[in-house]
């Protein structure tokens, strides 16, 4: 399968990136796996890794973390091959697993102290600061913690040793909206300080708010690597507009915008990138109410494939 390359983004200019994934291939006995996964994340960049469940995000991350040996290709961080440089490369990495499982019989703080010991950390200022910021009682036994609370402990463990690269697997799952915002602020602050991020997600919104660029993976292959603005313009939004009177609705529907549905006073319009035109058209009429539906990632892919199919 040939996949389109957006030349503006896939090849970074300048010397090697902070995180390089090159031709990573792994085939599992069940026929699944990843095929020739290649991307580069530059220093100080937040890189999104988008794809439906089962597309190969976690497998790729397992390779980057050195949990799996690739059949072909390699992943490197800070110029160090993650498999060969085991023991030193981890100093540069912070990691938040997709599913968090701590050890038995620990409290939040005893786990974090244990991890500080494993990291060889002396200074605990950042750890304490993070605990305060995420507002959780670190003395709670882990088995009594809710999913969101465990997620917070995991976030502290990923950030506390000031790593240069932080890899986050579905980071905001389980966090309430307020904490999601705190988390995003945290990522943006670290980014400003030069930290590099790889963040996997199946939610476009999560990626949209933080990332500079994102790779989209499906069936084990990278489909595209685009900057976030390009991705945003790919996303279609559906606007459901209810007009004050029926004639307006009919006139509006005939205005040349892409009409998805038209029922009485209601017109549903698909908008992709051309918001100006949509606003101008709606501005002409008396509107009673308006709703917006964002397309989920799956649908964006489907659109993307459709368009690619049409071009070829």
């Amino acid at each position: 399968m040939k996949y389109p390359i957006s030349n503006s983004s896939l090849f970074c200019s300048g010397g090697g990136g902070m995180l390089v994934v090159e031709g990573l291939t792994k085939r599992f006995s069940n026929g699944k796996g990843i095929e020739d996964v290649t991307f580069t994340v530059n220093k100080g960049e937040v890189f999104g890794f988008l794809g439906p469940n089962g597309a190969g995000k976690s497998t790729t991350i397992r390779h980057i973390m050195g949990f799996m040996l690739p059949d072909q290709g390699y992943a490197s961080i800070h110029g160090l091959d993650v498999w060969k440089a085991q023991g030193t490369v981890q100093k540069h990495i912070g990691y938040l697993p997709g599913e968090i499982n701590f050890f038995d019989g620990m409290t939040g703080i005893s786990f974090l102290k244990f991890m500080s010991g494993m990291q060889g950390m002396r200074n605990t200022t950042k750890r304490d600061h993070l605990i305060e910021r995420l507002q959780f009682d670190a003395a709670t036994p882990i088995r009594k913690m809710s999913k969101g609370m465990k997620q917070k402990v995991g976030i502290v463990a990923a950030f506390m040793h000031n790593p240069e690269v932080i890899i986050l697997d579905e980071p905001t799952s389980g966090l309430d909206p307020l904490m999601q915002k705190v988390f995003i602020d945290l990522v943006l602050e670290e980014k400003a300080a030069g930290t590099t991020f790889l963040m996997s997600s199946h939610s476009f919104q999560e990626i949209e708010r933080t990332c500079d660029r994102a790779a989209i993976i499906k069936d084990g292959r990278i489909i595209t690597v685009k900057n976030i603005h390009e991705l945003q313009s790919m996303q279609r939004k559906l606007f459901e507009v209810v007009f004050a009177n029926r004639e307006d609705a009919e006139q509006f529907a005939a205005s040349g915008l892409q009409v998805e549905a038209h029922e009485g006073n209601m017109v549903r319009i698909a908008v992709q990138g051309n918001y100006d035109r949509f606003i101008q058209e709606t501005g002409k009429y008396n509107i009673r109410s308006m709703d917006v539906f964002t397309q989920n990632l799956e649908d964006i892919f489907m659109d993307y494939y459709d368009r690619e199919g049409a071009v070829q």
């Binding site: 973390m65 912070g94 697993p97 499982n101 494993m118 990291q119």
Partner: peptide, 18 residues
């Protein structure tokens, strides 16, 4: 058990070797 439950990940992300 540590591999099964996933907590082995936390041992291997520290700067140590398998």
């Amino acid at each position: 058990r540590l591999v099964d439950r996933g907590s082995m990940a936390y041992l291997l992300i520290a700067p140590t070797t398998r």
